[in-house]
Each structure stands twice: as structure tokens, then as C-alpha cells.
Amino acid sequence: MFSLILRRLGSVLLVMLVVAGLSFLIFNYLGDPVNNILGVNATIEEREELRRTLGLDQPSHIQFWHFLQRAVAGDFGISYRNRIPVIELILSRLPATVELVFCATIVALSIGIPMGVYCALRPKGLISRILQMISLVGISIPQFLIGMLLILIFSVELRWLSAFGRGEVVQLGWWSTGLLTHSGRMALIMPVITLAVFQISMIMRLVQGEMQEVMRADFIKFARARGLTDRSVHLRHALRNSLLPVVTVVGMQIGSLIAFAIVCEAVFQWPGLGLLILQAIEFADFPVMAAYLALVGFGFAMINLTVDMTYLFIDPRMRRK
């Protein structure tokens, strides 16, 4: 297991390298931040001077090399736009996204799994058909639309919830949380729903499919033959055996949500990583983009590792290897 982790960390480093390298190549096509920093009135001379200062006049492989040299020392540079060290910036935005994604995932799991179980057990019932139809809609509606719809209903018409922001947050060390204040929790509602709708639908379909498969397995038939209650057969045996692929997919989902909850965060002005990277792209804030992409690679690899560990926890057969 230890060697597994070591091997993983090796591949993590490689992934981060490749991602960061590719991002430097891409930067060439995005434009540069010079105009955003100097303003429209800067002369050609001043622009060239700033490009030299920032090293943007260098070919991208040299820029990448310099980035690597600094990154090894833990210095990802400072944001062109926010003017603070990139790491500090990313860490300050991380809690908002993690809380949002965490809550959305909890909501999605606690709604999606029961729905999936229900549909697996009564695939032909009326309620199942309705749920399946809803989930199809949930999978196909763009997040942007869900978000705007919620805002129109709950902010503009009913005026119950705030259309933007995180509400009041409380600092716990470097972590900021909205979970401890009323306005913070209220602010979570719409973004969480927006993010969760797709996840609920996806988890429901996944659980349903897997569980229907498992329900045909011999050990389920044998569990029934042993006289176990339906509840025990369905939940303790069938559901548990259906969860492995769910863990994988949900893990990957959490990863991509943390990395790319961009639409949802943009709609609700949620001050997290998604909004940060969106603004960084608009500004050509290369240090933020490079560090962010490298960290996203790192995050994904970590999540993969966690998913594997969860496998070990759920499935005893894997422990032998």
C-alpha cells in the first residue's frame, strides 16, 4: 500500500509537470496581461518594458523553466490581477469552493442514492418513471439555466435568498466558512442545488443501474434464501455492492467540481476557485493560471488516491494486492 502511494505520488508529479508545461504553451495564444496592468494609455515602449520585466518576451519553454525553478522553491509568483502571492490567493479561495462542492455532494448522495435504490427496486413503478424522467431533465439542463431559474424564483420574485455571494463568513485560521452563520447557510442553498441537480441525476442513474445488476447476482438470491429481510438484502448487500463505481464517479466528480465549478460560481458570484480562474483567464493572469492548473492536476491525483483507498475500505478483495 505504501509503495502504491509512492508510485502515485510519482505520477502526480509527472501530471503536474505536463499540465504546467502545456499551460505555458497555451498562454501564447491567450494574449498577455500587459494592457490590463498598464492601461490603454501606456506607450509601446512601456509595454515592451513590462513584458521584459515579467519575462513574457522569453520563449515559452524558458518561461516554463523559470516557473519550474521558482515552483520547486514553493514560489508560484504573484498574481498580476490580485497582486498577492498566488498560493495565498488560491488558498483564500479554496474554502468557498470546497464547502460548496462538499455540501452539494452530500446533498446529491443523500438524495441520489435513495432515489437510485428506489428505482432499482421498482423499475417499472410510476414513481420510478417520474424520477427517471426528472433525472433525464436534471442531466440535460445546463447549470447556468438552473442557477438563473433559481435566482429568478427565489431572489427576484420571492426575495427569500440572496442572488450572489457567500453571506457572512467566519474565519477559522486560514479557512473561511459560511456554515456557521445564518446568512452563510442561506447563501449556500441555491449554488448547492445548482451543482447538485446534475449530480443527483447522475448518482441516481448510476446506483439504479449498478444495483439492478447486483440484484441479479447469486449472493442476493442466496441472501433471500437465507430469509433475510428485504431491507437487509437491499441495503446491506445489494446497495453496498453497488457503491464501488459510485465511489469512483463521485470522487472524480468532486475533483472536477472543485476544479471547474466555474459556471455555478460565476452565476452566484461565489468567491471560489472557479470564479478565480475565470477572472484569471479574462485578465491573462498567468501565474494564477499556471499554479492553478498544476494544483488541479495534483488535486485530481490526490482524489484518485483517495478513491483507491476508499476501494480498499469498501472491498476486502482489493486489500490482498
Binding site: M148, L152, V156, F164, Q269
Partner: peptide, 13 residues
């Protein structure tokens, strides 16, 4: 508020 529609919604609400 980056998103135009949200910004307008915030005004209307």
C-alpha cells in the same frame, strides 16, 4: 458580480 444576469437580478431583487 461578474455575471450580467445575476447582477441585474440582484438589482431587481
Amino acid at each position: 458580480i461578474a455575471n450580467n444576469a445575476t447582477r441585474v437580478a440582484a438589482l431587481l431583487s
